[in-house]
């Protein structure tokens, strides 16, 4: 299983993309499946260690996705108001010490933070395990606690 399908998530995403771009039919499913298998094995030669995902905690992806989408929406409105009406609070850098390690979980966290308009990932200090985030509206919100509770905690559970 592991040798045949080294990167199952990537292969599944590729099959889905193939079907969306063409048509949903058996022939396209077979062709897309073949492409996805080859691509998964090709990636395995470049990056043999895929991310380790805890299957028992996989359901936490659903609430995390919902929270992220809601936060992005809220943050959109906040940033739009700041642009139109002017600043209410200064912007600035925030340092956040994290327990999260490994390239894949950190990449997901970086994606979440930067996709949210109000915050942007700046740099990651590997030795100290410290993250530098630029926040557009420093209105007294405890950003380190917010990032830890909302995003880091579910990610810690999903990635082993």
């Amino acid at each position: 299983m592991k040798r045949f399908l080294p990167h199952p998530v990537l292969s599944l995403a590729l099959v889905l993309m193939w079907l969306l771009l063409t048509r949903f039919s058996l022939g396209q499913l077979l062709l897309g499946g073949a492409v996805a298998l080859v691509a998964g094995r090709a990636l395995a030669t470049i990056e043999p260690e895929g991310p380790r995902i805890r299957l028992g905690a996989l359901w936490r992806v659903v609430p995390l996705t919902a929270v992220v989408f809601a936060d992005i929406l809220k943050s959109n409105l906040l940033v739009a108001r700041r642009i139109l009406r002017g600043a209410r609070a200064p912007s600035g850098f925030v340092r956040v010490p994290l327990r999260l390690r490994g390239p894949m979980p950190l990449a997901v966290l970086a994606l979440i933070l930067t996709a949210t308009p109000g915050s942007a990932w700046m740099s990651w200090d590997e030795e100290k395990g410290e993250l530098l985030v630029h926040v557009l509206e420093l209105d007294g919100t405890d950003w380190p606690a917010l990032i830890r509770d909302r995003y880091e905690a579910p990610l810690l559970e999903i990635f082993a």
Partner: peptide, 29 residues
């Protein structure tokens, strides 16, 4: 409208690090 506001922010926000957030409006919702 969100994309337009983002572009407006790209022009009107003061420092580069503030402007970094503006295009995310158009790219997200």
């Amino acid at each position: 409208t969100l994309t337009l506001i983002g572009a407006l922010g790209l022009l009107s926000l003061r420092s580069f690090y503030d402007r970094l957030h503006a295009p995310a409006l158009g790219a997200s919702w």
